[in-house]
Design a protein around this nucleic acid. Sequence first.
DNA 1: AAATCGTGGGA
DNA 2: TTCCCAAGATT
Length: 346
Amino acid sequence: MLVDTPVSRLLVDWYDVHARTLPWRTPPGAKVRPDPYRVWLSEIMLQQTTVAAVGPYFAKFKGRWPTVEALAAADEAELMAAWAGLGYYARARNLIACAREVARLGGFPATEDGLRALPGIGAYTAAAIAAIAFGERAVVVDANVERVVSRLFAISEPLPGSRPRIRALADTITPDARAGDFAQAMMDLGSAVCTPRNPRCDACPLTSACTAYAQGNPEAYPVKPAKKAKPRRRGIAYWLESEGAVLLVRRPDKGMLGGMRALPGGEWGDPPEAAPPVPATWRHVGTVEHVFTHFALSLDVMAADIPARPVEGEWWPVAAIEEAGLPTLYARAAALGRASSEMLAL
DNA sequence: AAATCGTGGGA
DNA sequence: TTCCCAAGATT
């Protein structure tokens, strides 16, 4: 039987005063539990994504699909388009799969193990939903918690090898009561106080328990492995316009930008595949420089206008291209293609 | 189990 | 400018 430790008490007391107000969050100590759908939707969107970036998307999704049943019945292409720009598109595909499974089950599982079995829900998200939405005592470990715990205990072993120990130590400071508030408090602390660089230890409620603070080197934790150099690849995107519409394709579900609408173009590489969708007089209208997680891409944009549409493919009205749900890379390429086309028409 | 998978904002 | 990195999951 675990009892509250000084750390959890210090932190939850701090959270009662300093909790951020967020659209998907209920105030600390609220009697009413938050809607599991809201918690789940926000947690999926927040994976590797900043609160600021999620805000508008959460509002859009909640407005368009107010319940998990509504989301389960959503048109997949519409949902993918609504996710466009947020990144990590496997999350959107898993979102639908998860909603359909939850609808089939008649509701969200109320346990960490039950949640963990759903698409797109891993160890962190299962623990977070169990704690926040269902009040279960779960050990919630995200990058914030890793950083805070690494400093509290001055863990010198580098990530990711230190993860098992971090989790075990997080377990020792997780309270039985208000586990959801405790988890959110850890994340607020990591976001606003125990930051990666220039931590604001003068505003931290845990300095009395923090070994790294005592050592005077909190910024030294967590220890991380050296980063690898990013290779550069090249690619080509074709802006093919005809009768006021542009040819779009859907990328395969696996791989980069999986399942998303895009401009046609071959595989990225060095050299890139270069075959255009149709023979035409192609003009080079610009290059999009885009940086992904593990490589940088230079995407050359080629444009052409043809009098009649070949039958195959999805032709999207150029005037409504913003609504096609192109991921950022192709939205930028499309902007170049469209600008060039309009310039030519003058 | 190391690699893969986006994007935008802050320092 | 450049680098870091944010409420990770999947294979």
